[in-house]
Computed example of a mutant assay.
Amino acid sequence: METSGIYATTTTDMPQTNSPEMIKINFSVPAPLYEEALALAKLEGWKPAELHRMFWEKGFAAHAEGVNKRLVNKKLRKKLAQLGSDLSELGIEPEDDD
């Protein structure tokens, strides 16, 4: 991912709030997808910036959920493999699911 279009913004004329610091990111998306997103934002009464933030938030949440599921599954497979070898040492063979 090219990061040359990422930069932090600072504003001195805005009052101090407890909102998070914002970072502006420039990237490209297919024109039809962008136009569809803007049409959706207009229908929902959102400003384009609100729509983009929502996409980032929901997209990140979906990505993080997928990563977490893969990590949990990896740990479970490792535990099952260990359990299988422990049972084999005791002379117990795992049952087939067939």
Results as ranks from 00 to 15, higher is better:
63 H>F: 05
84 G>R: 15
38 L>Y: 02
25 I>T: 08
5 G>P: 02
83 L>K: 15
70 R>H: 03
87 L>P: 04
70 R>L: 08
49 A>I: 15
1 M>K: 02
63 H>V: 03
5 G>V: 02
88 S>F: 08
74 K>S: 12
43 L>G: 05
55 F>R: 06
3 T>P: 00
30 P>E: 11
60 F>L: 12
70 R>G: 04
38 L>N: 06
93 E>R: 15
7 Y>R: 11
89 E>R: 14
84 G>D: 14
20 P>K: 00
76 L>R: 15
73 N>W: 02
90 L>E: 12
57 E>Q: 11
86 D>V: 02
53 R>K: 11
61 A>M: 03
21 E>P: 14
14 M>N: 08
71 L>N: 14
96 D>A: 11
78 K>D: 15
43 L>A: 06
7 Y>L: 04
81 A>D: 12
59 G>I: 00
16 Q>K: 12
28 S>N: 09
47 K>Y: 13
29 V>D: 03
14 M>R: 14
14 M>P: 06
44 E>T: 04
96 D>Y: 07
2 E>Y: 01
24 K>E: 15
53 R>M: 09
52 H>M: 11
91 G>D: 03
36 E>W: 08
9 T>K: 07
34 Y>T: 06
65 E>F: 03
58 K>P: 08
18 N>H: 05
45 G>P: 04
57 E>G: 00
82 Q>I: 05
91 G>A: 05
78 K>C: 10
88 S>R: 15
38 L>A: 04
30 P>V: 03
75 K>H: 09
72 V>S: 06
70 R>S: 10
73 N>S: 10
78 K>V: 04
84 G>T: 15
27 F>D: 10
13 D>Q: 14
98 D>S: 13
82 Q>R: 13
15 P>G: 01
46 W>T: 04
57 E>Y: 07
95 E>A: 12
61 A>S: 05
62 A>R: 02
20 P>G: 00
1 M>C: 02
79 K>S: 09
67 V>A: 01
29 V>F: 02
89 E>T: 10
7 Y>H: 13
37 A>W: 01
25 I>C: 06
26 N>Q: 09
30 P>L: 07
77 R>T: 10
67 V>W: 03
68 N>R: 13
17 T>V: 02
39 A>M: 05
65 E>D: 09
75 K>E: 15
84 G>I: 11
41 A>S: 06
4 S>T: 12
81 A>V: 06
48 P>F: 01
8 A>T: 14
9 T>N: 12
39 A>V: 02
83 L>G: 05
97 D>R: 11
33 L>H: 08
60 F>S: 11
1 M>E: 07
16 Q>R: 13
39 A>F: 03
74 K>R: 13
57 E>I: 06
89 E>F: 04
85 S>M: 13
95 E>C: 05
30 P>A: 08
1 M>N: 03
86 D>L: 08
76 L>Q: 14
26 N>A: 07
65 E>I: 00
21 E>H: 09
76 L>T: 11
80 L>M: 13
98 D>N: 12
24 K>P: 00
54 M>V: 10
